[in-house]
Amino acid sequence: MEMNIDEMKPQWQSAQKSIKPGQRLDSKRRTSLQRLADRYRRFAWLALLMIPLNLPTLYRLQSLWLGLGFALIMAAASIMDFYLLERITSTDLTRMPVRDVLFRIMDCRKKHMTFVFLAIPCVFLWIFALVYLYRPDEYFVIGVLSGGSIGLLIGSRVLYQFLRDYREALDE
């Protein structure tokens, strides 16, 4: 079927008149941006809470560097999530121009992924140090490696999804 660009305007206007009325507003749902903000808020507080909740375990490790390393990684993750939360919640869809909204969202995603790329080697380093410290305990080592592999699989899938969305919007 052919499509003449000059015919597109009357065709668009005709299509608008033919669309049937849709469902009414469901005021109980959350929008995509609100869900994203909720997720950042949740993970920001979770990362912050991980520090005091894991203090007894970290104390038992008897390594100050491991404890400090863990606290630093969690604190950095929490700060990043709070920063991204602020950026998302301050995006006013009713007033801002479309280009600004698009660039802000992409900027948030870029910063999110940059942080993930920087944090992953730190986390691997921390896990390696933990495994090295407890290398005589083979069950502990197997547990850490299994958990790490599952985390890597889930993280890779999320990363693939993100890069696909990011690539499309980068066409700007």
Partner: peptide
């Protein structure tokens, strides 16, 4: 403005 902003900021 509102609808276009909603569409460009939508996360699947």
């Amino acid at each position: 403005r509102v609808v276009l902003n909603t569409c460009v900021s939508y996360k699947r």
